[in-house]
Design a protein around this nucleic acid. Structure first.
Lengths: 183, 183
DNA sequence: CTTCATTGACAATTAAATTAAACGCAATAA
DNA sequence: TTATTGCGTTTAATTTAATTGTCAATGAAG
């Protein structure tokens, strides 16, 4: 659905800061930040307050949001959705399309030098594969460690504990696919 | 907004029970019950799940909801919204219009025999007045107690602690007004 | 009438959204 | 430099929504 991007767009169109809109709507700037980053799904009541303050109707808000929602096939690079859970800026996971509606999740991943998805192990259902586009990444799967460079790839059962680390001194870019989508 | 009534209407149009819709949407029947009674404001994500299961788009849902939202002046009796906080069934507070947008709140109140808004005192901003339509009600305001019958009325500063009790053996009906709306 | 199934509602618990207070960053001015 | 202001973000605590496990009421079947 990407409520967040839509809200941010119309907020910025009006030249409002998160704090300004927050005070108009009777909410806090923190809440707006979380909503715009799709870290939380606002209650209908909260969203209504925000839209009343802008102002724009719920129907309008969702109309243009759902228009672009007819089976979408092509995505420009700025349409990828950032989904990195802990946003330390070290790891960027940019998702192709609005997942959840598909049984396939494709990510455009960027690992800054030193970036690390661990040390807690990632475990989830499905299978996972990827190709390294540039840089180097150390991939650990169920105890097996390998350093992959541009052109290399991986494929494993996601239920095996796994971890990614950029141990080099250049940015590492990976394109990966998971099924079913989860993380 | 009355999300609840709108949801209930379209759900019943499709001949779905709360449980059926709940399982389709991946929620629980309890949640739907609360939403339909306007006891909670669902998250956009929850509402989306429900509407996808019906199915109907968000825009559609809010469009017809906001259509009837152009400055409404007349209300049929079935359009009053029940707002009694603790629904013991003893006290019914049916609100004229969709408050919050107005600085005046009018309630059509029904007190069953023995019904009591106490013993905790009600205190809020504004003024409050009412007329007894039928039956008898004991009204206590700031320690002053009076029993009012059909045709009688009251008017006081809402900041004074107050309480209503139907001490008779017949249903008591009162029409009241508050400003600003709150309870 | 009893039994079984289904309905909507509710209280207590769990999960999630929201707040309040910070933080880091960039631009500006002293 | 060193404050100062305004921005978006983040974290912990609080508030609110959602779930779970009932409950009484209704209706159909035996």
């Amino acid at each position: 659905m990407n409520i967040g991007q839509r809200l941010r767009t119309i907020r910025e169109e009006r030249g409002l800061s998160q704090r300004e809109l927050a005070s108009l709507a009777g909410l806090t700037n923190g809440t707006i930040s979380l909503i715009e980053k799709n870290k939380t799904s606002p209650s209908v009541a909260s969203l209504k307050s925000l839209l009343d303050a802008i102002p724009i109707s719920m129907a309008e808000f969702f109309a243009t949001l759902e228009d672009q929602e007819t089976p979408k096939v092509f995505y420009r690079k700025n349409e990828f959705v950032e989904v990195s859970p802990s946003s330390e800026g070290q790891v960027s996971l940019r998702q192709l399309g609005n997942a959840e509606q598909h049984s396939l999740q494709v990510l455009h991943e960027t690992y800054q030098p030193g970036a690390d998805t661990g040390p807690e192990w990632i475990v989830h259902e499905g299978e996972e594969a990827g190709v390294v586009i540039s840089g180097e990444v150390e991939v650990t799967v169920d105890g097996m460690i390998e350093v992959l460079g541009a052109g290399d790839g991986y494929l494993f059962d996601s239920r095996l504990p796994h971890r990614f680390r950029n141990i080099g001194d250049t940015v590492c870019v990976v394109v990966s696919a998971c099924t079913p989508p989860s993380f």
